[in-house]
Design a protein around this nucleic acid. Structure first.
Lengths: 333, 333
DNA sequence: AAAAAAAGTGAAAACATTTTCATTATAATT
DNA sequence: AATTATAATGAAAATGTTTTCACTTTTTTT
């Protein structure tokens, strides 16, 4: 029913090969015939059948965005920003497929279904899938953390980022600092932990002397963690939080205790979450530019797909965004 | 390089057709041969070539999620929830393709590239694309608003939802209510406007007597709109906001003026935004269950794709979620 | 003007699968 | 035992492109 190359060939009085060449520019075609073919193609509303093209060229013109899971606990922001970042780079040149790794049936991965994969992996249970894709030589790039199998990756310097936040608190004269960390089984948590730990050391402060609570990156756990810290250690002057959402919870918790930020308590976050800037918190935080990460990853992936070169890993700096949730306590030291 | 049906056929000593039938169950195959074929297929790690299957069967096993635009102004929540809702319904049976309508090149839509489309349209400029898809007989379902061309849709009762919020405020005895609306060119705004307007009438209140300000659905504009309303009309006891993010802005604005919610001011939102429940605001709001909308739309689309029946339009109710941002002023009336 | 190079062209193969159709083998019915 | 129905099988066609290859025509170079 759909108009094919054959229809055009028949109408133009040339061969299929001719039409294909005219349409794709993949070979010589006489001037007048080319014009005629293009005109007829337009007239007939010809659109190439992607399946046929894919089959013949073994290229799907599709990039797979693979997430550990598409569930209610995964982050809307990350999905959104990854889509934006990738779209920015690939424009309309590739289709974007969203794939959940946890629902993947082992052994069913068709190497032709995606020309390349962008991996947004949170859990080690993704490894089976990654191995399958890797063994089938599908070009892939991991975004936002290093993975096994020597998969090229773009990552941000989580440790350095957290160190910046800690350095900043210390530079503003804070010494009694409470920490609200994330789930302990996450690599990001480990890196960020190392960040403030080293920073404290550098400033001659014993990291083990600082109280730590653990949250799960959501608002409510930030709030309860802060409540515990602030009641057990009323002398704290600052809270270093492992993400913005928990930082916002911490600020509300402080308000409940009659503490105003930054007058009575300083707070830092991590992520530069959209809402952190818009909201009233004016949160000082570390920017994890996910759009940038994704676009960088897409660039690497395109190189890998189109030139077949193995891209170099990329580390992106995390920038400290200074707003007004941290008070200067006088020259620290 | 990839193992094909031919390889299996050769190894099993049968024809291609046999293998295809054994693998897909589309025809009779002798017991022992079937077992042998399946075993060999597994041994060799056979995965069907999707492009070839698509070409032959004219089905792509892909659903396109079409958004007006994938840009920095579109909502992360909506994208995320749509993906969740659709995944819930289609499981692993279809691939999910994210497509931006605004970057579509007219006339390049291959009917075979998606078996069906889920349309998340915000603007009327999407019409060209919709017409193209519609004319190519690609099954489609619009989610979250009615569109031209008689496209089947699932929508929520925005007007009724907003009426519920207004009814609730009025039932709690509020009469001096300020309204923070959304952009005036959006259909959602018009419907929600009609909602509170009618509700006010029903309670014998002249809608034109209530002060209205306009925001753009973001936190900051909610905040400034609230500031204008509250300073110009200090007697207001409640603010009816057209979404949650602006409501949160309004609450912070009130705090700046020394007003505590709900003691001094009542506030309602719309959306039941994720953060609205988690945050301290405990916002009373109208639930727009986007996951539900998306899954319902997906169900309709599957019906349309697989049984070829034109689905009936669906209207979903919006539920009022009562938390603690509205104060009871004594028996109203 | 002859030789060499380049451009133009179409038939046919290739891509991997599914499906039709005709044939043969087996089972069920008289 | 003959007939009929059913199951099992493979050759070949079909899906819509692109690409190779051989051939013809034109253009350029000597």
């Amino acid at each position: 029913m759909a108009v094919t190359i054959k229809d055009i060939a028949a109408k133009a009085g040339v061969s299929n090969a001719m039409v294909s060449r005219a349409l794709t520019g993949s070979g010589p075609v006489a001037r007048d015939k080319k014009e005629k073919i293009l005109r007829i193609a337009k007239e007939l509303g010809y659109v190439p059948n992607q399946a046929a093209v894919s089959l013949r060229k073994s290229r799907s013109h599709t990039i797979g965005l693979c997430f550990s899971s598409i569930d209610r606990t995964s982050s809307p922001y990350v999905l959104h920003q990854v889509v934006i970042g990738v779209s920015d780079v690939v424009g309309g040149r590739y289709n974007l497929l969203v794939k959940a790794i946890d629902t993947h049936q082992p052994g069913t991965l068709d190497p032709g279904f995606c020309d390349g994969l962008l991996i947004m992996s949170r859990w080690d249970s993704d490894l089976d899938f990654l191995e399958e894709a890797w063994s089938k030589k599908i070009p892939m790039v991991a975004i936002s953390r290093q993975l096994p199998l020597d998969i090229p990756f773009v990552a941000t310097d989580e440790q350095g980022g957290m160190a910046k936040a800690m350095d900043y608190l210390l530079s503003q004269g804070h010494r009694r600092i409470g920490i609200i960390e994330g789930p302990q089984n996450l690599e990001a948590t480990l890196c960020r932990h190392a960040g403030w730990w080293i920073s404290a050391r550098n400033w001659g402060l014993d990291p083990r002397s600082l109280p730590v609570e653990i949250g799960n990156f959501r608002y409510r756990t930030g709030k309860t963690a802060a409540a515990r810290l602030l009641t057990a250690h009323p002398d704290l002057t600052a809270l270093l939080c492992f993400n913005d959402e928990m930082a916002l919870g911490a600020i509300d918790s402080a308000a409940d205790l009659g503490l105003k930020v930054p007058r009575d308590l300083s707070v830092t976050g991590f992520d530069n979450w959209d809402f952190a800037g818009h909201s009233d918190a004016r949160l000082t935080t570390v920017e994890r530019n996910t759009i940038r990460i994704a676009s960088e990853g897409a660039r690497m992936l395109l190189g890998s797909m189109e030139q077949g070169i193995r891209p170099d890993n990329v580390y992106l700096e995390n920038k400290l965004i200074i707003r007004s949730s941290v008070r200067n306590m006088g020259t620290g030291g």
